[in-house]
Amino acid sequence: MTEPLLEVKNLTKIYGQKKNLLRSGNQVLAVNNVSFTVNKGETFGIVGESGSGKTTIGRMIMQLVNHTNGDILYKGQKYSEFTKESAERFKSKVQIIFQDSGSAFNPRKTIGSQIAYPLLKKIKDRKAVLDEVIKFIEMVGLSKEMAYRYPHELSGGQRQRAGIARALILKPELLVLDEPVSALDVSVKSQIINLLENLQKKYNLTYIFIAHNLDLVAYFCDRIAVMYHGEIKEVGSTKQIYQFPHNPITKKLLSSILTLDGRYKVSN
């Protein structure tokens, strides 16, 4: 039943250069020896404050940033052993949704053309691509005229929907959601979360949800990893984490959740 889709083993990322004759060493350990497994069809949350390395992990999974040490395995295959062909296939199977929908789209290109370009690489027939773009735009709850608009002409929520359409157009299996709703208004936030939930069911998607606070994560994720200073402090099912937190960092994060009845009460 639980089939691992993505395995991260002893992953380490060091930014900056080593000290040598010309440079003074200025290295930052962004991610330190992190291991976790994401199973097919689940929503895996990575929570941590700013600077905890959660975003870097997302970038490494996306291959936007190279890792320094350790391994990432997608369906059992190591990233480092990707052939050109399998890397190409991988790129369409793993996609990302960015936090700031405002800057995640090129301001000088229409939304439609930006959703289309991943597909244009695969299909040459422009008419077919346009049909597909319109289909996805409507699927995420936008009207098709939005395809001809520029990013600044859309509201934040609409842009994030367009971002989802762009990520889904290659029919991926795994989506990295990098704080997809933290820049949005409350009522729009829940619209996007609901949309993501529906799409997950429809396409059997696996999500990695990166967030800095625990309240939405508790609602949205099946399992959670809590990060602090580049290390994973605790991994477990959502219920485990919320009911029986072990690590003081987890407890601190939990007790900072502000609910409608005041602070979240951490047991023990």
Binding site: V186, A218, T238, T259, Y264
Partner: peptide, 11 residues
């Protein structure tokens, strides 16, 4: 707006 806030009591 109030209903948009995730309810954690189920946990």
């Amino acid at each position: 707006l109030l209903k948009c806030i995730p309810d954690l009591s189920w946990l």
